[in-house]
Simulated scan of single mutants.
Amino acid sequence: MSFNHFDEQGQAIMVDVSAKVPTLRTATARAVVRLRPETLQAVLAGRSSKGDVLGVARLAGIAAAKKTPDLIPLSHPLAIHHAAVDFMPEPETGEVVVTATVRAFERTGVEMEAMVAASVSALTIYDMCKGSDKGITIGEVALLYKEGGKSGIYRREGEQ
């Protein structure tokens, strides 16, 4: 297995994508936040002392997608054309599935932007709820889907 972020001497490099033809790139990623059920129920009822938790988390994720090259050293700066963050809360279990989708007409994929968006949205939920729930966990950050470019479509096994 070879990794394309290293040159012949083993030094980290930014992959040269200048010769690639831009195509529409799409990626969707997920992160899972687990809170106490009563904490999530308070969030959904608008009773959080910090305000609209999911609204702020959505904006944080969208902003994070646009800042990915500032956070991941070898990622390319991209002109993102679409970034969205959605939430599927399960009030009975306290679980929130965060899903982020990013699109761009670019020479390289947007997987990292989608994963950063999902992760930062999840971290924002944690930050806004940590005062009332110290046991929050974040897990299962995963790429669910990607398309565009020469590698074609990837769909995580078990996902629709």
Score class of each variant (00 low, 15 high):
residue 90 E to I: 15
residue 38 E to R: 08
residue 109 G to Y: 00
residue 145 Y to N: 07
residue 24 L to H: 07
residue 25 R to L: 08
residue 14 M to T: 13
residue 100 A to V: 00
residue 83 A to M: 04
residue 51 G to H: 13
residue 73 P to E: 10
residue 46 G to T: 06
residue 55 G to L: 11
residue 113 E to C: 05
residue 50 K to S: 11
residue 35 L to W: 05
residue 89 P to I: 09
residue 123 L to D: 09
residue 30 R to E: 13
residue 135 G to Y: 05
residue 122 A to T: 10
residue 64 A to K: 02
residue 61 G to I: 15
residue 49 S to H: 11
residue 10 G to M: 02
residue 45 A to V: 15
residue 78 L to R: 13
residue 56 V to Y: 02
residue 33 V to D: 10
residue 132 S to L: 14
residue 13 I to T: 06
residue 91 P to T: 02
residue 52 D to S: 08
residue 34 R to L: 13
residue 54 L to T: 12
residue 151 S to D: 14
residue 112 M to K: 01
residue 37 P to S: 08
residue 132 S to A: 09
residue 116 V to E: 02
residue 143 L to A: 07
residue 137 T to M: 09
residue 129 C to T: 14
residue 85 V to W: 02
residue 148 G to I: 09
residue 146 K to C: 03
residue 146 K to P: 09
residue 112 M to N: 03
residue 78 L to K: 13
residue 92 E to G: 07
residue 115 M to D: 00
residue 96 V to T: 11
residue 154 Y to E: 02
residue 60 A to W: 00
residue 68 T to S: 13
residue 146 K to E: 03
residue 148 G to N: 07
residue 100 A to N: 01
residue 16 D to C: 06
residue 34 R to P: 04
residue 84 A to G: 10
residue 159 E to V: 03
residue 130 K to M: 08
residue 136 I to L: 11
residue 151 S to R: 14
residue 60 A to T: 14
residue 49 S to I: 12
residue 71 L to V: 15
residue 13 I to S: 13
residue 79 A to H: 13
residue 63 A to K: 08
residue 121 S to C: 12
residue 12 A to T: 15
residue 59 L to P: 04
residue 37 P to R: 07
residue 20 K to C: 02
residue 49 S to R: 15
residue 87 F to L: 05
residue 113 E to W: 00
residue 158 G to Y: 04
residue 127 D to L: 01
residue 76 H to C: 11
residue 114 A to S: 14
residue 76 H to S: 14
residue 69 P to T: 12
